[in-house]
Amino acid sequence: MGSNPETDAAAEPVDVHRTAAERLRHDGQRYTAGRRAIVAALAEAPRPLTIAELLARVPTLAQSSTYRNLAVLEQARIVHRVIGTDEFARFELTEELAGHHHHLICSSCGDVADFTVDPALEVLLAEAAQRVGADTGFRTAHHRLDLVGTCAGCRDAR
């Protein structure tokens, strides 16, 4: 069986900015200062960010160009949109750049948090996804797990 980026703990670290520049160049785009600032902010963030959170972290970004730049970064497979339970999309680096992880999504406030699982459990999740694919004829490329519930902040507020 070959290497699996979802379960291979010894994977080489990725140079996020070099990879982003290469992917953009491949799409005929430039790695502008604004795009670099967005990628840097997402790389430093402990969880997916809304556009408002991204703008608060990088106040030099203009809101209109941030929307356009996120669309370009998403098209180039640098940024991934995470849909929560509220009206705000959140953004994070793609799995190839940020590493394999899953999400906790609060159904009350819409907050999204990242989490990882033990490598042994990750292997079981990957195997379960492959079995589902085999049973249904669906070709599984990878998996992600979103757990939906109530975050500690919302539980404490009640």
Results as ranks from 00 to 15, higher is better:
Asp15Cys: 01
Pro119Trp: 09
Arg131His: 13
Phe138His: 04
Arg139Asp: 15
Pro46Arg: 09
Glu87His: 13
Tyr67Leu: 14
Thr140Tyr: 05
Arg155Asn: 09
Val72Gln: 14
Arg57Val: 03
Leu55Met: 14
Gln29Arg: 12
Thr116Asn: 06
Gly2Ser: 14
Thr19Lys: 01
Pro48Thr: 08
Ala89Ile: 02
Leu42Asp: 04
Arg158Gln: 14
Ala126Arg: 15
Gly137Met: 02
Pro5Gln: 12
Ala89Pro: 01
Ala43Leu: 01
Asn4Trp: 06
Thr85Met: 15
Leu24Glu: 07
Pro119Ile: 02
Val148Asn: 10
Thr7Arg: 08
Met1His: 09
Ala20Asp: 03
Ala141Gln: 10
Ser3Arg: 11
Asp146Val: 00
Phe138Trp: 04
Ala98Met: 07
Val148Ile: 15
Met1Trp: 01
Leu61Ile: 04
Pro59His: 07
Ile105Thr: 10
Leu97Lys: 05
Arg57Asp: 12
Asp86Gln: 08
Leu61Asp: 06
Tyr67Ser: 10
Val148Arg: 15
Arg139Gly: 11
Thr19Asn: 01
Glu95Tyr: 06
Ala152Lys: 11
Glu96Ser: 12
Ala89Trp: 10
Ala76Ile: 05
Asp146Pro: 05
Ala157Asn: 07
His143Trp: 13
Asn4Cys: 07
Asp15His: 03
Ala157Phe: 07
Arg77His: 08
Asp118Ala: 14
Ala98Val: 05
Ala45Phe: 07
Thr150Trp: 11
Ile78Lys: 06
Leu24His: 03
Glu87Lys: 13
Val14Gly: 00
Leu55Ser: 04
Ala11Met: 11
Gly28Gln: 02
Ala141Tyr: 07
Met1Tyr: 07
Val39Phe: 00
Thr116Met: 11
His26Phe: 12
Thr32Lys: 04
Glu87Ser: 12
Arg35Thr: 03
Ala98Gln: 10
Arg23Asp: 00
Asp114His: 13
Arg77Leu: 03
Leu54Trp: 08
His143Cys: 07
Val39Leu: 00
Gln29Glu: 15
